[in-house]
């Protein structure tokens, strides 16, 4: 555990908090892609299946407890978000702007996970699948943003926190590579792709929102 990793995780938590705040405060899910939220829920469940494995034989460290708590928060908040979008604030969701085809993303990531993994077991392939899927899970949201052409400021704060936490993870890996000889190519390449997908968004967020303007696509 290092300062980059902990800051990234806290920023990830903050992004979830901002998303929940946006929905509760405006009592609306307008501008939020249900498909992206669904993909995140699939990502968390596929990756954190180890929660249901026996922990008895594992050496118990503080970081294990930390991971367990975070995993439970990530899964439950993403399921709760789906509930808010599908039930509580359903009337404010506009499916006509959320038209990205996630079937292709799911199929591509499953294919890649079956081809490129560290070990060909169910748990490992699902873990790898979740890494690949997380890298592209934001695409429906960015697609929705490009279709509507503008976004509420609080929604852009959510996206910024979500993208920026991935950028800090890159620093974490550089740090770990130097300090622990840590190498994880699957995570590194996916993480780099994931962060790169935000570049246009980061640019417009910096140009507009940080200067007090509304987020509008040029």
């Amino acid at each position: 555990m290092n300062v980059f990793r902990i800051s990234a995780d806290l920023l990830h938590l903050l992004s979830i908090f901002i998303l929940l705040l946006k929905m509760q405060k405006t009592r609306s899910v307008a501008g939020i892609s249900f498909k992206t939220q669904l993909l995140y829920t699939i990502v968390f469940i596929a990756r954190y299946l180890d929660l249901f494995e026996s922990h008895a034989e594992k050496s118990f460290e503080l970081v294990t407890l930390y991971n367990i708590v975070m995993k439970i928060i990530f899964i439950s908040s993403s399921v709760y978000t789906l509930y808010l979008m599908k039930k509580k604030f359903r009337a404010t969701y506009d499916p006509n702007t959320d038209t990205f085809r996630i079937e292709y993303l799911l199929a591509l990531c499953l294919f890649l996970a079956l081809m490129f993994n560290y070990r060909f077991t169910v748990m490992e392939v699902l873990w790898t699948f979740s890494i690949y899927l997380e890298a592209v899970a934001i695409l429906p949201q960015l697609f929705m943003l490009s279709r509507t052409g503008e976004a509420e400021t609080i929604t852009t704060h959510y996206l910024f926190a979500l993208g920026f936490y991935r950028a800090i993870y890159l620093l974490n890996w550089i740090w770990r590579f130097h300090m622990e000889d840590y190498v994880d190519w699957i995570v590194w390449i996916s993480g780099a792709v994931q962060t790169a997908l935000y570049s246009d968004f980061f640019y417009i967020y910096y140009k507009k929102v940080l200067h007090g303007e509304k987020f509008v696509l040029p």
Partner: peptide, 10 residues
């Protein structure tokens, strides 16, 4: 590859 794969990140 590694004997036991331990994914210690989130």
């Amino acid at each position: 590859f590694r004997d036991s794969i331990r994914h210690d990140e989130l």
